[in-house]
Design a protein around this nucleic acid. Sequence first.
DNA 1: TTCGGAACCT
DNA 2: AGGTTCCGAA
Length: 736
Amino acid sequence: MKTPGDSGFAFPEWAYKPESSPGSRQIQLWHFILELLRKEEYHDVIAWQGDYGEFVIKDPDEVARLWGARKCKPQMNYDKLSRALRYYYNKRILHKTKGKRFTYKFNFNKLVLVNYPFIDMGSTGGSVPQSAPPVPTGAGTHFRFPPSTPSEVLSPNEDLRSPGGMFSSVARRMARGSVSDCSDGTSVNSEIEEGNTGAGEERGERAVSGGGGAGGGAGYRSIIHPRLSHETLFRMYGGPGNPAGHPGSRGHTGHRIHPEPLSPFPVSPLPGPGGASLLAPPLSPALSMTPTSHLPYTPSPTLSPMLGSHFSFNPEDMKRYLQAHTQSVYNYGLSPRAFLQYPNIVIPQPHRPAADKASLTAERGATERAERATTAGGGERGGDRHHHPPLAHSTHHHPHLPHSAHPHSHSHPIHHPLHLGEEPPHMSPFKFKLQPPPLGRKQREGQSQSKPRQSSLSSGSGSGSMSSTSGLGSSLSFGSDLSSASGSGLISASSSTQSLNSAGLPKIKVEPISDIESEEEVEVTDISDEDPDERDEEFELFSPRHFRASNHHHHHHHHHVNGTATTQHQPHPDEDLDEDVFKAPAPPPPGLMPFFTSQHTQSNAHRGLPILKSEPPEPVESNTPPSQTASAGAPQTKCIPLKLRFKRRWSEDQRMEASQEESDDKKVRPEEERERARQSNGQMEMEEDGTGSGEGESPPPLAYEGSLATPLASHRMASAELHRATAQLSLENKDC
DNA sequence: TTCGGAACCT
DNA sequence: AGGTTCCGAA
């Protein structure tokens, strides 16, 4: 309810916001990069180019200088900056576009998932193919969500032009805060910010908004958003164009919009004002995100998972939340991981016709291939530069109102920022138990690798392989790759309460429910054969069919399933798994399931970090400790799908790697993941990373718009709410 | 140019 | 955790 106005949502503004990186103290490099990318002013030094998420540092020294200024590290140079960038390889946040100088590519999916699993991208945006919106890492403590804002409505126009515009104001603000000046007053700080707009602007805006904004958090949010969202969205997600443009690649869609100069992403999610219909575009996976209304749910204050520690929420909220998520995921093709957190919840789902999916897949596959080929070729694509103003993309718009009007801080109670800890969760019918965080990351390396470098990869992993992946089914917990990076922290936090970055969700165990699984394994299998894309895969997973079965089956089956699945899939599960695992653990998205299942719940998912475990009615089995048992015990889960996915993913990755080059794994912390995998075993979510990591390139997700429509609305609402809630939580930052 | 280890810093 | 700094290797 609440804010009808918000129908919109803002997109991931946060992505850009520096401040947002909660976990980290200061702005993170990737954030910073994103920030620069979004600003036209810096297009001479760094700009989106090539595939989705791909950008080129045109002036390394300048970028380094800016970064140094931001971090108050005058000695910064490209060599150092690039080192930092290289660290992202392992995290999979970024990877190098080989063959192109100073060219890197973001794996947004990962970013998102990892950092903000709960986020529903859906609300805001759209589709993001591979690249999802970046998120601030850590979701910690202060997290700010992108509020839903009314801004969405905005016209597309604005965005382009003003890079600085709204976003900037916000950003700046934040930035400023964070950056401030370095040691002495030099104004190192924000060059970026400054550059953008001038100072005046920023402040002015801020002030204005500020005025309006009433209370702390809430006000803040509102302030920010007024326009941002839209812009951001577009930029990020690119609304319309595929940046890469590659029109070629995208044949499916019909529309290729123009690529936005800024954003690399193809597709615009937004439903246009005109119609939601826009979305539909095949290509875009995005789905539509029309803003319609969201679910009426009210977020409980603590809903956000982020808080980790506290988890208070009521089941209803959870459901909604999940739902929203699901949709998002679905829409965006994100990994289901997000859902994992709340396994039991059932969500009504939109269903999408299998057929569609199939078709989509097929298309996509083709498309993808094409793309890949292109990419692989190394040649980049010619159109690199697409920097043109984006046009209006579709834009969505809604009449939304002035959100200003309803600044009321939402009805939800949320506002309070977080209290950490204290709240008792529960209340919900479900029982949630907090579990200790399992994993750690680090596992793999040990094997002998003389040198970790690139070579290893799959083979290596395979070998290492975890024990069998078989485990899949069992556990629920998953971790994401990235997560490892940020996630781990989270987890811990959650458990302890420390606030931590919190993003971590608390681990929860749910009792009621059950499981999942699906009979559909078979189907899945089919799919697996080919899979062109990661994303697709993901979607598939999501697809109702797979899971839906589950409803009840859950029970013991899992085991069975697992085995089965494994068998079916591949002879070498281990490899797959392992790898996948490393790369990305993919969990079966329980959340997803919900879609399918609509009525019931099913799965349980766990996230790696936060792991949740749902316990089946019979505690005995599943309860087992998350860690090891998971695999074994783990019952539920929809392993099958997972495996399939894994495989697929795996295959894909390999392909990609082959073609492009591996970029991904390399070393990556296989170990860690592996561990996770073991424990959880079953589920891991690979999807995400696969997607992302795999390359980022992957094709855009499909859109399932039609089916979703209804749900979307609701889901949106939910999202919005969530956002708000989270937003409130957010807080602040610091300076140098 | 790019990569990544290692030590170190915050 | 997320760099920063240095540096040797490819």
